[in-house]
Design a binder for these strands. Sequence first.
DNA 1: ATACTTAAGTGGTCTGACCACTATTCTTTC
DNA 2: GAAAGAATAGTGGTCAGACCACTTAAGTAT
Lengths: 217, 217
Amino acid sequence: MESQKTYSKMFLEIVGGLRNLIKEEDIKTGGKLPSERELAERMNVGRSTIREALRSLELLGLIETRRGEGTFLADFQKNQFVDVLSGFILQQPTSIRDVRETRKIHEISAIQKICNCSTLQKMPVWNGFLLKIEQHMCIKRIDVIREMIVSTGNRLSLKIWMLLTQYSQVPYGVEMTVEEKNIIRDLLSALVIGDEGKALTSYFNWSERVEGERGEE
Amino acid sequence: MESQKTYSKMFLEIVGGLRNLIKEEDIKTGGKLPSERELAERMNVGRSTIREALRSLELLGLIETRRGEGTFLADFQKNQFVDVLSGFILQQPTSIRDVRETRKIHEISAIQKICNCSTLQKMPVWNGFLLKIEQHMCIKRIDVIREMIVSTGNRLSLKIWMLLTQYSQVPYGVEMTVEEKNIIRDLLSALVIGDEGKALTSYFNWSERVEGERGEE
DNA sequence: ATACTTAAGTGGTCTGACCACTATTCTTTC
DNA sequence: GAAAGAATAGTGGTCAGACCACTTAAGTAT
């Protein structure tokens, strides 16, 4: 906490420091945190830095602030999801492998759901993608997958997936190559006729190719 | 934006304001946002307030800041994305339906993984459960499912599942009835021989029965 | 034309100062 | 003595100004 050496992202260290503080002082759900001024003094940083960290946690729903009263640990049940996910966001020890695998769980699930629901298969967006591929237009990797998860209508799954995507260190934001488009075309073609087996085969094929690009582990 | 009336949570309005700004000015992925000082002036608030909002979005991964350069829209997709995320940010209650469905996504995924991995099929815990059923011993619903997810070794998936379970209002903590045990026995029997189809059929059968108990929606 | 220096712009942080609100304490009053 | 009201201290909310470190671009000297 006393590192303070113009380290870029000091407020992120404060976020971590707050986690420790909550743990060490055993602050329970609904319990009160030290005041901003006290935190600033204890951590040897300015109050504004403390506030930036607190505001971030507030937006995540982890804490609750009441003017004139103080800052409190947020309601338990209500924000558990965010808590877990933010735990990973805060670089806690979780292997990239788990993050990746969990992301894929949600992707596969979406494919399966679409293949077993004729309403979802008929959505125009799939043929839209196929058309784009036909015309060699630009499509990013993330676009197709995201649209699949969006189509399932499960917003929670979507939220989790989005968070996982940004931390799985897979180059999802780039455009697809010609080879990839061919695979995705197969995937979409299988999708619209509900051929789950073929769709998943294409997915795994594509997934391996994408992950292979940056073979770090 | 000019409301500014000591309204508690001004920085939340800024978050919303930024979303509009991104949309209206059509700032693309990777595009540059106005500087903090300019934003402060345009929105008639102090720079520190702007920073609190920006830092929140940064922790969420929505934006990326580079000292000396500026603030950029993170590697995400357009307005659609920001809309969805900001929806959650604003504490929208996630529907029970989504929680349930997401929980099942993880459960199904675990079953599929076990059925496709002979190492997992050979784990003694499955026969242990079968033995307990045979001897009419007490087994809680949650025990079997949890063990399946534990066995996959994906700790992140396990954590998410545990939270969802706690939140999905399904009576997982109670003991299984005789009928349920029969279904679970089928499930486990299929599991240990890798019969994914049968295992899933049993799972869905069991799942419907359990959820039907408290037919709220 | 190239290399170096300078300046401007930007995020990162700190300080101090108010404001608005809450809870506590201390009066005043009965 | 007890209750009602007033002053006080503590807290989050916000702002303004000042540095610092870094990046980029413009300007200068070679």
